[in-house]
Design a protein around this nucleic acid. Sequence first.
RNA 1: GCACAGAUAGCAAAGCCCGGUUACGCGAUGGACUGCAAAUCCAUUUUACAGGGGUUCGAAUCCCCUUCUGUGCUCCA
Length: 502
Amino acid sequence: MALHVYDTRTREKRLFETARTGEVDMYVCGITPYSPSHLGHARCYIAFDLIHRWLEASGWTVNYVQNFTDIDDKIINAAAEEGVDFLEVANRNIADYYEVMDELNVLRADHYPRVTEVVPEIIDMVQQLIDKEHAYVAEDGVWFSIASAPEKYGMLTGQSIDAVKAGAGGRVEESGKRDHKDFALWKVAKPGEPSWPSPWGDGRPGWHIECSAMSLKHFGEQFDIHGGGHDLRFPHHEAEIFQSECCTGKTPLVQYWMHNGFVNIDGEKMSKSLGNFWTVREALKNYDALVLRHALLNAHYRSPIDLTEQLLEDAKGHHAKLVEAYGHALVITEQAKKAGMQEAPRLPQADVASNDFLASKLGLLEKLLQDAAIAMDDDFNSRQALAKVSNGARLIPQILNNEEIDEMDTAAFAMYAIDWLEEFAGTVLGLLPEKEVAMAVHDPSLDPARQAVKDQVEQLLARRAIARAAKDWDSADEIRDALAAMGVSVKDTPDGVVWTLD
RNA sequence: GCACAGAUAGCAAAGCCCGGUUACGCGAUGGACUGCAAAUCCAUUUUACAGGGGUUCGAAUCCCCUUCUGUGCUCCA
């Protein structure tokens, strides 16, 4: 069992090996902060968060760099519309990014370099490319010359240079480009635009160059993983290959190019023009952050995902079971501690004295965790892994509720279940909430929000109990409906009446 | 047009690289429990792999052809 990773460039899944033993240099293209983060961002950064987490769980030290493209046409336009400085727009949306990603339980990268902080490095790189005759200076800026390295064309997309040549070419006259396939390394500023001094006139970096400059700065000439959205393969990532490899002379720039699939909404591409565009914040009004995370992890990272209401509702149900199992185990452990049972044996190493049922289920849980690891090692198959976790989450309450198992073993199992869940569902998948939250899900009496309505609810429940005892079902149902209107749902379980707040 | 990806049971989605064994889940149906509902559990939903050829003892999996879908070729996670 060893990790295999799919590489977009070679189009194959292969054994994961890095330049430096035990260390992974991973660069993921970050956002252009001209508007609040949307669900596509959530999908992308959750996908790479999963990758980040699994690499670390597997014993690698990950050096994770993710940039912010904080100067760009769209930011300039947004700032102009608002009549504010471009940095104000960028900073606001970067703050939004951090906030929503924190909610989605995305772990922070090690560095978040910003374009505006690496302008000297960019200028240096552009100068080297000019010196090596891979770039040329024009009136409106500096352009990379595709003709200087045609063999690098189509590295990620398989497109042939001739085919693209045959495509649209009418834009050449509008700029200083010699060939419509050439791309900007440096753009000379128009009046009023933010700019930095350079040997080719005041201006700003072209879109692609920052990633080359940043990866060079943080990792050197070659590194292990470069990630981003599927759409970035062309031209962005191919442009990076041109710039970096032509500048350093080292090839390949990246060992594993990783691209996540896109988000569709109800079968259509999510876009502002279609009106089905969701920011993360909007989505979080309707769904818990971890439920959204669950939904997004319930697909392989390379597949497109179609977010539908049904998909999200399914995720809600699955996630609730996971949290319930966790909360249940936590509550039992707390109770056991109070009862002075700290010395419960550690499973599964300890003998399981009380019965075969428990022993067999423990074996099953161990197997599920192994299978989940195998799934993750197969190019981060989180859907498969999540299926294993869900199976476990269903098994755990069955064991905790089993009356054949004595108290000591139940307590021991509860501790084991907590570890089981935290190890994978928590640490690797990032799907477990805070302990207090989980415990309140299992035992609603622990939820502070209940205290406010407790007296009123219990009065009504008492009246309902009387009505039920008298088999006055109409009155009983009336009371239940009244409680439902207050946001309280009532369930008659074998252990008595349980009520929860929606 | 060119390029890349995909087409799997009612829905959704793994498996395909490394041919031979059940995916998992949701929904539905039946049952247990229940005043009803909810939840839970059990069972059924099973000769599913776009179509056609080929290779093979054996193909969802490998090869060829066809059809259809998505995405990229301009800013995009």
